[in-house]
Design a protein around this nucleic acid. Structure first.
Length: 271
DNA sequence: CACGATACCTGTAAGC
DNA sequence: TGCTTACAGGTATCGT
């Protein structure tokens, strides 16, 4: 589910519930997700007060006053359920804070992960150290894209999905950004024109900002951190629109599979 | 090194 | 209706 805008939305929603609050109880309903939980996770968090909820790439970071940072990844199906009516089957970790709020880390497919590292070393965490610049930050722009695309044979789609190049883009927003920039997803990176790279440099932050503003786009199994389901309806220009009219030229949107993943594009607008 | 394919796990929806 | 199959927003790892 979650790409950068969804994780951003989740962390923004978590902040008012957690920041300034102490973890009274942390209950683990299993010992691992994608990987084992770190030793002493519950003890290290219990009694700690949350200082900040933030995001890096698709990772949510929760800093505590003990100098620890919880690093959580929502995988494909992860959600943070706030004040759930009941603890369900896939609520793997349950956090109870001093304000009486309950947050459950729910992840049916268990592709997510949860780790705890020293805050000072968070950037050096093996999951985070190799990740490229934030697309909404100052280091992203035409120069970065031009450098990353130059001489590359890999398709534009694959380059944008590569977290070492840019942080936080996933299948949906890559499809949308390529559409806006008029770039065919299968075009080799090195053959994308300068003009289209420039359009892409503008399109990437644009699609992300719009999604964040919309409260995070979502598919059917995504919920806002406060449980609100109101933003299910966001539709995309090309993502998931196979056979539907391109919003720009009305040509039917096509789907191809690249590296086992669906790419949606307009065959007339994207080259 | 660059790139593609596959595995991980479960739920949902479409197809027969 | 029931069973089977395809597919899902991510990442790590293993071939070629």
């Amino acid at each position: 589910m979650p790409e950068l805008p969804e994780v951003e939305t989740v962390m923004r929603g978590l902040a008012p519930v957690w920041v300034g609050q102490r973890f009274d109880r942390v209950t683990l309903h299993r010992a691992d997700l994608r990987r084992p939980f770190p030793d002493g996770l519950g003890q290290r968090l219990t009694g700690a007060t949350v200082i900040a909820c933030r995001r890096r790439a698709k990772y949510g970071l929760v800093d505590t006053d003990r100098g620890d940072t919880m690093v959580l990844h929502l995988g494909m199906s992860g959600r943070m359920r706030v004040d759930p009516d009941a603890i369900g089957k896939h609520d793997h970790v349950v956090f109870e804070t001093g304000n009486g709020r309950v947050v459950a880390f729910n992840d049916a497919r268990r592709f997510g992960s949860l780790d705890l590292v020293e805050t000072a070393a968070a950037d050096a965490h093996p999951l985070l150290s190799g990740i490229g610049p934030e697309p909404l930050g100052p280091d992203f722009g035409l120069a970065l894209l031009a450098g990353a695309f130059a001489d590359r044979l890999a398709p534009a789609k694959a380059l944008l999905l590569d977290q070492r190049i840019i942080a936080g883009l996933g299948n949906i927003y890559v499809c949308e950004a390529l559409f806006r920039a008029g770039i065919h997803p299968a075009r080799a990176g090195g053959t994308v024109t300068k003009a289209r790279l420039k359009a892409l440099a503008a399109a990437v932050p644009q699609v992300l900002e719009e999604a964040i503003a919309a409260g995070g786009s979502s598919l059917r199994d995504h919920a806002a951190p406060d449980g609100t389901l109101g933003y299910f309806q966001k539709t995309f220009s090309v993502y998931g629109q196979e056979g539907n009219a391109c919003p720009a030229c009305a040509t039917p949107v096509e789907r191809i599979v690249q590296s086992g993943r669906s790419s949606f594009f307009c065959p007339r607008c994207q080259h």
